[in-house]
Write a protein that binds this DNA or RNA. Structure first.
Length: 552
RNA sequence: GUCCCCGUAGCUCAGCGGAUAGAGCGCAUCCCUCCGGAGGAUGAGGCCAGAGGUUCAAAUCCUCUCGGGGACGCCA
């Protein structure tokens, strides 16, 4: 509908195509949609309204400094939304969930998986071609440490790893073990393979543990091992590589950075010159390869596979890494222009009482602990509120996932999150279980109504209350909201919308009795509205990766 | 030192060029003869860190200052 309104405005005032006007959702008392086109064009809003084809609107009005407000005819809302038609566009490679082998999962790993999974679901919903990749950290100097630990102690665990890490004299030995691994040393290979196999099995539990869609690809770092030499060659041919302190680097110190950082307004005439991006190490002085080289290989491999866009869901501490990566790819002529696009979808990291979570500081919140604690709390609440519930274990798991996932998804991904047990374990108000609860109650009403085939029964002639009208409208704009969310890859746009929808649902069935309504037309209208709201909320929850429950 | 992110209610956060700045938690008061109270209603609580600018319009864009966090050649 929003797109239709945009077309109508363009018909009425063709010059509007030169400006970037908004169509937004105003306060319901003004209308369903609102545009600032007249303000931007400095034209008389009333004159524009005259020109407009008003056939789909109940009313079009001018208010405030010159907003044009539209109220859609009820009978159009009653028809419901058409499914989203396939949007073409290129193939997207979406990379998220990059745990490191032989290290436990913590809440930070959960965050990339949850955000990445939600983005994938939304992109698929809008008809994009998207494939996901885990890109596990199974290669690198790290493994020198692990292999050395294994050789010394016969096993790898956190304590031994930390001990080794702290011991300066062992550092060189550990690095050598990785160099040997890269050179194909048989024993090291075997140890490495064992570690990877074990961890892989462990990590893939995430799919079930957090209801993450299956990954389309498992292209871990080691996958690119044999693809790196070619990249080094290409860098040499382009004369990008040079020696520095024994290492092979790409010097980005003097590279002018295009535009202003983060795509803000272009630099002003008298602004300071853009700074370089520092030094990018491709091969270390000991001959070992780096993460950056592997990422170059990853991107180029993706391009060869036919992907036209590569998205990385990685926390914002790696912003410089990705800027370096993209800059080198541009210098190589692989990215930019008509080539493949790349984007770092960064997110804030989780802090705990003001301190970043870190293994070193010993304040790491492990995934398994947070899941266990949440499950415990959920089980307790179910015991209190609904102790004869069927399939309790299943519901407990679903509610737990909802609480944890929604906590991650409701925040703007750029923000750092303060991990607060009280808030995570609070299932009232703006929380995952609140949304599930709203859904369960709608289900319950429909179940008791014993009326089937409700969908065609919304009758637009029934007098609606303000809340009912609002709910009907809000239930019909999910596709537009998902578009907005995907535009900047912000899951919280969808999460916030669903929270508002759930709030409206609660308000509605508090104000309007459904089954107890004596007027049959009204009762049927309300039942149909319940059905519509339930479908929308259910679909929205599915897009967040949260399970909608009939009972809880 | 350079670069990046962030300063919005007591706390945790939405809002990121538009109409009176919102929510949850916490606090105060109210609502179960009524479809599930994981709910609803009402209220108190804000110089949107500060100062300049751009604009018809700034919490939102630009510049600077002050605070907090992060990243900056052999980790990934």
């Amino acid at each position: 509908m929003r797109e239709q309104i945009r077309q109508l405005i363009l018909q009425a005032i063709p010059e509007a195509k030169n400006i970037n006007f908004d169509i937004s959702y105003p306060d319901p008392k003004f209308g369903d949609y609102s545009t600032n086109a007249a303000l931007l064009l400095r034209q008389d809003a009333k004159a524009i309204v005259e020109q407009l084809d008003k056939s789909m609107f109940e009313s079009v009005s001018v208010a405030g400094p010159g907003f044009i407000n539209f109220r859609i005819k009820d009978e159009l809302l009653v028809r419901g939304v058409k499914g989203v038609r396939g949007v073409k566009g290129g193939r997207i490679l979406l990379e998220y969930f990059q745990p490191n082998i032989a290290k436990p999962l913590h809440v930070g790993h959960l965050r990339t998986a949850i955000i990445g999974d939600c983005l994938k679901r939304m992109l698929l919903y809008l008809g994009h071609h998207v494939e996901s990749d885990t890109h596990m950290g199974d290669w690198g100097t790290q493994f020198g440490y692990l292999i050395l630990a294994y050789k010394k102690f016969g096993e790898v665990n956190d304590k031994l790893y930390a001990e080794l890490n702290a011991d300066e004299s062992q550092k060189e030995a550990a690095k050598q073990e990785f160099v040997k691994l890269e050179q194909g040393d048989k024993e090291n290979r075997k140890i490495w393979q064992n570690l990877v196999d074990q961890s892989m099995k462990e990590f893939l539990k995430i799919n079930d543990l957090m209801d993450i869609l299956p990954f389309d690809h498992h292209w871990p770092e080691s996958f690119y091992e044999n693809k790196m030499p070619e990249i080094v060659e290409r860098l040499k041919v382009k004369k990008l590589l040079k020696s520095s302190q024994g290492a092979q680097i790409v010097d980005l110190e003097d590279v002018a950075v295009e535009g202003h950082p983060l795509g803000r307004a272009p630099l002003l005439e008298d602004a300071p010159p853009p700074r370089g991006l520092g030094v990018a190490i491709i091969i270390k002085s000991d001959g070992g390869t780096t993460y950056l080289l592997r990422d170059l290989a990853t991107f180029i491999f993706g391009k060869e596979q036919g992907f036209t866009q590569h998205l990385y869901v990685v926390d914002n501490r790696q912003a410089l890494h990705y800027r370096q990566l993209f800059e080198i790819l541009k210098l190589m002529g692989v990215m930019g222009g008509k080539g493949v696009k790349g984007e770092h979808i960064s997110y804030g990291f989780i802090s705990f009482k003001g301190e970043a979570l870190s293994t070193r500081k010993g304040n790491m919140v492990l995934a398994k602990d947070v899941i266990a604690q949440t499950e415990e709390k959920v089980a307790k609440i179910i015991e209190e509120k609904n102790s004869d519930l069927k399939e309790k274990p299943k519901v407990i798991k679903a509610v737990t996932k909802a609480a944890l996932k929604y906590f991650d998804l409701k925040h703007n991904r750029h923000s750092d999150i303060e991990f607060d047990w009280d808030e995570v374990l609070d299932f009232e108000g703006d929380s995952g279980p609140y949304l599930q609860y709203a859904y369960a109650r709608l289900s319950s009403i429909l179940k008791k109504s014993q009326i089937s085939n409700l969908k065609s029964q919304i009758n637009s002639k029934v007098q609606m209350s303000g809340t009912e009208r609002e709910l009907l409208f809000k239930s019909s704009i999910l596709p537009e909201i998902v578009e907005d969310a995907v535009k900047n890859y912000l899951p919280n746009v969808l999460a916030n919308y669903l929270y508002n929808l759930a709030t409206l649902i609660n308000k509605f069935y508090h104000e309007s009795p459904v089954l107890a309504e004596v007027d049959e037309a009204k009762r049927n209208f309300r039942l149909a509205l319940v059905s519509r709201a339930k479908d929308t909320l259910g679909k929205g929850l599915d897009l967040l990766g949260i399970r909608a429950l009939e009972e809880m």
